[in-house]
Design a protein around this nucleic acid. Structure first.
Lengths: 200, 200
DNA sequence: GTCTATACGAAGATAGAC
DNA sequence: GTCTATCTTCGTATAGAC
């Protein structure tokens, strides 16, 4: 039973790290405050994560990336267009619900070339981006898109969404996210109906 | 002549801040190291920038945003497509020349909701994004695009470029930036030739 | 195995010597 | 006006008591 609560405490730290990185970025996320927020002693943090902050960050990024990928994969089952829309709505909800104070932890880690962010955390960020891009590209391929075009479109979607999340936070407005929606939908339609043969 | 060298020292601090924020983000950029890098005593920093780190950061963001805008405006004179290409090449050069260790300082500030980043720095970031988007949208309008479509396309370009810069850093590869290029060019062509009437 | 107490350095900012 | 020396707080990480 200790296993259960111990793993729970560990998980709480990872989830808390993801949330804090999402808001402040990695450097501004202190292990101290993280432990306090998770009601865990500071020492426990280094017991669960011998690799220190870097390990904690890497697991937080992987956790967050996988959670997003799971939702994306589920929504993509209804087709690439529905997947795209859900993806946009999901991020929109995060920035709105936090009054533009939170964004994407994967993005945050990717723009901080601090020693502790290199290595595991950066690798986890790259894996998350690759996972999301791969899911989108796969769905586009499944719906008639050519391989190369699918990868290009998927990359553009991920890049545009990430960039617009940051722009929304800077502007304290959802306009950037809302404005890219239409163009991305057009791109998805174009990619999945290359010859415009009148698919459903 | 003291004016000249004093202003030079000030400018050196601003440029150094922009460079450091570009690489590490705002939180990991210390005023101490900044002063050392600019060969200025720590006290001088607070003499030039009474507002402390926040003021320094805000000026660094504005400086960087204006520099980018100046280049973008110049290249856009040859048309939106040439402007887009130059924009992409410019960012590509930054990430490649620094071995993927530097990105966009405006983006970095936008994803760090730390107290010192709110206020002036965040406002400067929003202004930079708005300036770039405005320049692109204006050029698209000048070349036949409708107002709303121009703004959507311009926003998508800025968002996609910013996002792909972060992805390039995470992957340590220029693939993301290279992959979005084609799609963005198609979007610009579509926006400026809405009825496909065979413009020059 | 868990956690308190602490080591050690660096952060932002300032006071006061030149 | 310029800058050195310092104050205070907070960072990561650990040692050693329970």
């Amino acid at each position: 039973m200790d296993d259960g609560s111990a793993e729970h405490a560990r998980q709480k730290l990872v989830a808390g790290a993801a949330d804090m990185i999402r808001r402040r970025g990695l450097t501004a996320t202190s292990v101290r405050e993280l432990a306090k927020h998770a009601d865990a002693p500071l020492g426990s943090t280094y017991h669960y994560f011998p690799g220190g902050k870097a390990q904690l960050a890497a697991e937080a990024i992987a956790y967050s990336g996988n959670a997003t990928a799971a939702i994306l994969a589920r929504e993509l089952e209804r087709g690439p267009l529905d997947g795209l829309r859900s993806f946009l709505i999901m991020w929109r909800k995060i920035v709105v619900d936090t009054d533009f104070r939170a964004g994407c932890p994967v993005l945050a880690v990717s723009v901080e070339a601090v020693p502790e962010a290199d290595g595991p955390p950066r690798a986890a960020a790259a894996a998350a981006f690759a996972q999301w891009t791969g899911l989108l590209a796969g769905s586009l391929c499944d719906h008639g898109a050519e391989r190369a075009a699918a990868e290009r479109t998927a990359t553009l979607i991920v890049a545009a969404v990430e960039g617009s999340i940051a722009m929304c936070r800077a502007h304290r407005s959802t306009d950037p996210l809302d404005r890219i929606a239409d163009s991305l939908e057009v791109l998805v339609r174009t990619a999945t109906e290359p010859t415009r043969e009148g698919a459903s």
